[in-house]
Design a protein around this nucleic acid. Structure first.
Lengths: 236, 236
DNA sequence: ACAAAAGTGTTCGCTTTACACCCATGT
DNA sequence: ACATGGGTGTAAAGCGAACACTTTTGT
């Protein structure tokens, strides 16, 4: 039996959200067959680091960004051919960042990192299109049964932002079902969970009545979860 | 930068079900530090095979079994230390087999393969206990939103078998909620999906009224799925 | 005053739940 | 005849869906 000659890499698909737009972080490749092609941040795992460490390191090195949520997505092991001399297996992660980090510093190597609107991604290197597809499915699914939307918002946000986030990310789904999020029902539902606390801040943007800001209470959520509570927002 | 020295392996957690019992397939290790310890079937991925091929091959070689359902579970990459000379990353898969395959042939290397009742697993090698834990969570979760229970039953089965399967696998969950599956409601629900077809066979086992056999119509399910149908059985 | 966004309750229909008796066979 | 498991309907409650007007600010 020949010695195993497979390399292991990680790839990150990092989502950001701002002003009713979902963004994906991409890196321009500098070398190799895919030179000047956009790709997801990622790279080979070092011998001494864990997989999540590797992902975080790559995202930091390539874009100067720290994610606020990270979750393993899937391991793509059948077709990736990154390096002609060796087979590569890639463990893909989904990351979320809050809007403060959406502006990229031009430090380090970050010149070639850029946020792209999810609608309107360029052609991607390797099999990254497949990863993106799986990632958006996961994001959409998780949005309906886990409170991860908050990781894409500022720590304190008006209710309408949360609502708009759901509308944006689930747009395709809602369209297919010919449904729309009902503002009142959505708010009622979320508030009934008791995982949001209202701050005493009120924010006014342009015209219209100013909005009260809310904060997600992670701790409260974890408590409730232990008691058997399930976050769930349905669209049927 | 030192050359990457990480090996990639696959592990399979294969579930079987029979007579209100959930089983897990285990292999007795023949060599190494874990000699004579039970472990999940698995091993290193060959250079030329895909991950799923690797899993299927290992399960075949080590237990002479072919699974009827296979799904990637998770990639465990942070702590596995299988071989003292190299780090090992393991991609775990969940497999399901129907009851016909629950009797192991004594051919090939299968002498050291054995089905263990899920309640009552021995101490496992490596980090396999962690894999088992994640796998049962996945199995329980999927049971409620995907029609995978059928892969654990014979192609034609009485309704009570399906019901008992759910009761068995979700026992912990039902206990925690102090709920029980209602026979009538369960049946009504499942039948309302229109993914079961009744056969004209009637099966009599011991005493009691004989039961009509049903068959899962995979094709019908796929059609419905395309139209936006979601299989779902709740326990709240 | 008007435009723009935030905030708020009620009714209706459907889905889920709870619940008990008869049926067909083996012994 | 009795024991065993299979098969069936209905009523009440709870939840999700639909829906419109008032409030507060900017211009």
């Amino acid at each position: 039996m020949k010695a195993q000659n497979i390399k292991i890499a990680v790839d990150a698909i990092v989502f950001g959200y701002e002003k009713a737009q979902l963004y994906v972080l991409l890196i321009k490749q500098k070398y190799g067959v895919f030179k000047d092609t956009w790709s997801l941040p990622g790279g080979f795992v070092l011998n001494e680091e864990s997989l999540t460490e590797a992902v975080k390191r790559e995202v930091r090195e390539e874009a100067g960004i720290t994610v606020s949520y990270l979750e393993q997505l899937y391991t793509f092991g059948d077709e990736v051919q990154r390096d002609p001399r060796a087979r590569v297996i890639s463990v893909a992660y989904v990351g979320l960042v809050n809007p403060e980090k959406l502006t990229l510093q031009a430090d380090t190597d970050a010149q070639d990192a850029q946020w792209f609107p999810f609608q309107g991604l360029p052609t991607l290197a390797y099999d990254h299109a497949k990863i993106v597809e799986k990632a958006i499915e996961r994001l959409q699914a998780k949005l309906s049964y886990q409170p991860i939307g908050f990781d894409l918002l500022k720590p304190e946000f008006p209710f309408s932002d949360l609502e708009q986030l759901y509308k944006t990310i689930l747009a395709k789904e809602l369209e297919r079902l010919e449904k729309d999020l009902d503002r009142r029902n959505f708010r009622k539902k979320i508030l009934s969970f008791g995982i949001l606390e209202e701050t005493d801040k009120i924010q006014s943007i342009g015209s219209g009545r100013p909005a009260r800001l809310y904060r997600f209470n992670q701790q409260k959520y974890k408590e409730l979860e232990k008691e058997g509570f399930h976050f769930e927002i349905k669209f049927a």
